[in-house]
Nucleic acid binder design. Sequence first.
DNA 1: CGCGCCACTGAGCGCACGCTTAGGAACGCC
DNA 2: GGCGTTCCTAAGCGTGCGCTCAGTGGCGCG
Lengths: 209, 209
Amino acid sequence: MDAEAQGAAQTGEEWADVTPDAARRLVGAAVEAFAERGYHATTTRDIAGRAGMSPAALYIHYKTKEELLYRISGIGHEKALRIMGAAAGAGGSAAERLTGAVRTFARWHAEHHTTARVIQYELQALGPEHYAEITGQRRRTDRLLRQIIQDGADSGEFKADDVPGTTLAVLSLCVDVARWFAADGPRTPDEVGALYADLVLRMVGADVA
Amino acid sequence: MDAEAQGAAQTGEEWADVTPDAARRLVGAAVEAFAERGYHATTTRDIAGRAGMSPAALYIHYKTKEELLYRISGIGHEKALRIMGAAAGAGGSAAERLTGAVRTFARWHAEHHTTARVIQYELQALGPEHYAEITGQRRRTDRLLRQIIQDGADSGEFKADDVPGTTLAVLSLCVDVARWFAADGPRTPDEVGALYADLVLRMVGADVA
DNA sequence: CGCGCCACTGAGCGCACGCTTAGGAACGCC
DNA sequence: GGCGTTCCTAAGCGTGCGCTCAGTGGCGCG
């Protein structure tokens, strides 16, 4: 499965590598609840209920409610990092790599908008050391994208005066997809990815095909 | 005071038209607290404490904690709508109007990032009818921006294939400033406005000066 | 069959929440 | 001074939270 296909594939089992089964169901239930109402407005009773368990069962698998958020954030950000890494490591011109990166990154945020919402907008609920760890993961993702844009600027392929600023804008654009995207809306994740890749290529001053 | 200056001016008294004084202090305290920790993680005791009052004093001026958020959202969105309206109503080409709109809108979200954070990311905490009302205000802002982009597309000034999609992306970009902007960061609100105006002009395929 | 193991439940602890109520200080007005 | 109004506080009510713990059912294993 190449980087392009990875984003769209298997919406079904996003948490496949969480075991045992009960722990996985809890993660799924928590993501749903956190995305819908926010971390602080979600109760452990609600999470356990959605997973078909009693409230006490949650604490067999996770020490606290915060640890659930931490696990979700870790797995989610790792996935985001892998997507960006695959795009950055692919061959081709800077424009081709940027197109791939934005298309898959934006598409992932649309496709998995519930997970993305949680990992992008509920981070502040993490404890300080967990927060710092996740922030580090996020910085690595940023760096990969910045390097692509820097490459294009260096080679003259892009006309970007402010590489860090442009990187920030591109990431911000992709991440914010998680906020507004609705599964029953007029756009498919694929369409969002294509639109955003096109818009971003213009932003960096590449020749649009 | 013209539309361009309006955004940057008087960071000090953002809530000048809230009276009496105690009600205004409560709004200020609530915005600070909501922006820092989120609506649900903020307690009425915390808000009252920041405003230098006892917890009970809050309920003299506001019926519930939710009403505080509603008032903040209403005033904030009205301000955002006025900024966009001033830019849309200004004279000049579509490119000039779009530049002004993005510059002031993005700058406002940077300058007032605490307020903006609350009104853009805590809306879901509102009750259903308050939420619907605020959503209406937001749709009016969207429409103003879309019209500018549509004008440019119609006149051939812009090359935008997907006007609603481009509008969505531009708004998303500006709004998300509130999420990442830090007052002690490397960029001033003016710089953010200028950078974003430039990036957006490229996005719509206008000739960049 | 008997035993140990362990995921799980029912009941509930202690706490902090949103919000209420009774009462009082400060002030304007006659 | 007497009185009403406005704005506020101290105290606390009822609720639902995150989390705990003693006990249990069902399973694998000899």
